[in-house]
Design a binder for these strands. Structure first.
Lengths: 263, 263
DNA sequence: ACCTGAACACCGTTCAAGT
DNA sequence: ACCTGAACACCGTTCAAGT
């Protein structure tokens, strides 16, 4: 009812004068928070300087421009996601193998994949930013970071050296494509709030597919039901396993390392 | 030397009053041209209205806002790319099988994949836009369009119905991820002009990878040479074949349809 | 119904000036 | 060396007014 509570709180309208010195790290940290809270449009130099209690010139002393800032934010989040000790995800990667730490190269690739998958789920703006940053070319560090953590496992799998680049690239591309697309659902699920609303969202999407033109979209209509029932993480893992099985099929020395598949 | 040539040309500084009526199609067409010419930042309401010889209000009569306009541009380009008769690409999909029209489901999936791959190569802004549009959710038509053209071939491959959704999703995700990442190189290659410059660009990127920290990036350094030598389309095709082979490995009824692989 | 174009709020970025 | 904050050019969008 009353807009400002009658509490005896101190009368600070703006956050009181910043005590910490401004550093690039603090700026990037604030940028990530703003991106998480408000998406890409939630980060402007106005919102950023307000949160940091400073002016634009101060920020420009530490970062070159907004592109640089977005790149640094992406780098920071990706680094945390693919860091070795973060690849044991909070929720277990798959239900068939709940608690034990990943041990085989296949499992570690799955862990890296889920690390990125979850990072994009938690920071939906990452999906677009990864595409942008990676398409920026060899200057950036984000592509090598991901590539390295995948590639080490490709090597450990026993893929012949002549195919390292091809196999690691294929895995990287699948992971980025799938995780990016799933950022969709995560973002919307969160925007909609509860898990119940998420189910309702999938219901809506599924219905939309089911109502497509029967002549133009027979296949999409036929799988509309699956869209409603599917589990994002399970689908994602199945795709990773397709690529891994494909690598094994092309390179017979590589054990296929597949999980027991039902059916 | 002289800024405006001494020709007897008519004194039209601005393109003379538009003769065609303004339609949504013409607006989208102009938007695509501006995006192709100048990338994402090349399309503004100022550049657009200048090219169309009109004002912003006129454009807003036909499109809801910039997001709507970008979505329509993406839709138009994707529709052209996955149209059935455009899936016989201008340059042959792969050297081992040059001229004959695609006939097997595997070949048609490869054709759809190359259709998108080439579209992103020709319209690099598509990479980011596809991520954005697809993450917009079930409202859009771009995801169903691609999904449908892939899914029909998945069905034709003999994948059991219970796995249609999983298999088509995996293919879609790989294709979007790989094509998106490759937009990078295409955009830069074009920015750099000639093919000679493209080779030079790959040389630079390869060198950058080779100079990464040996402790942090041993794998990436090891494959730096491959980055220089690799062929984008060949890599892309190898990844599609990994996914197809993986699908075949998981579903034994499906013929693997693989090309002869050397090695 | 379709178009015009001035006006508005907001954005990223700069820079002379301070400490 | 680091920060301030007014100012600038430009952006997407609106809307009263025209035809």
């Amino acid at each position: 009812m009353c807009q400002n509570g009658g509490m005896t709180a101190p009368t600070r309208k703006k956050p009181e004068r910043r005590t910490q010195a401004l550093t690039r790290e603090r700026i990037v940290e604030a940028a990530v928070e703003l991106l998480d809270a408000g998406g890409e449009s939630g980060l402007t130099f106005r919102t950023l300087t307000e949160r940091l209690a400073t002016g634009p010139g101060a920020v420009y002393w530490h970062v070159a421009n907004k592109e640089d800032l977005l790149g640094a934010a992406t780098d920071a989040v990706v680094a945390a996601a693919v860091a070795p000790d973060s690849t044991v995800p909070a929720h277990p990667a798959d239900p068939t193998d709940p608690a034990e730490p990943p041990s085989s190269p296949h499992d570690r690739i799955r862990a890296v994949a889920f690390g990125l998958f979850d990072a994009i789920g938690e920071h939906p703006w990452l999906a677009t930013q990864l595409a942008t940053q990676i398409s920026r070319g060899p200057g950036g560090t984000v592509a090598p970071q991901i590539f390295e953590s995948i590639g080490r496992q490709v090597r450990a799998m026993g893929v012949p050296e002549g195919s390292w680049f091809t196999a690691a690239s294929a895995l990287l591309h699948y992971i980025l494509g799938a995780a990016g697309q799933n950022a969709a659902n995560s973002a919307r699920a969160r925007a909609l709030g509860s898990d119940a609303n998420r189910a309702e969202f999938l219901e809506t999407a599924s219905t939309a597919w089911a109502e497509l033109d029967p002549d133009d979209y027979p296949f999409t209509r036929a799988v509309a039901g699956r869209l409603r029932d599917h589990d994002d993480r399970e689908q994602f893992l199945a795709g990773v396993d397709f690529v891994l099985a494909g690598i094994a099929a092309v390179h017979p020395d590589v054990g296929d390392g597949r999980r027991p598949h039902r059916g």
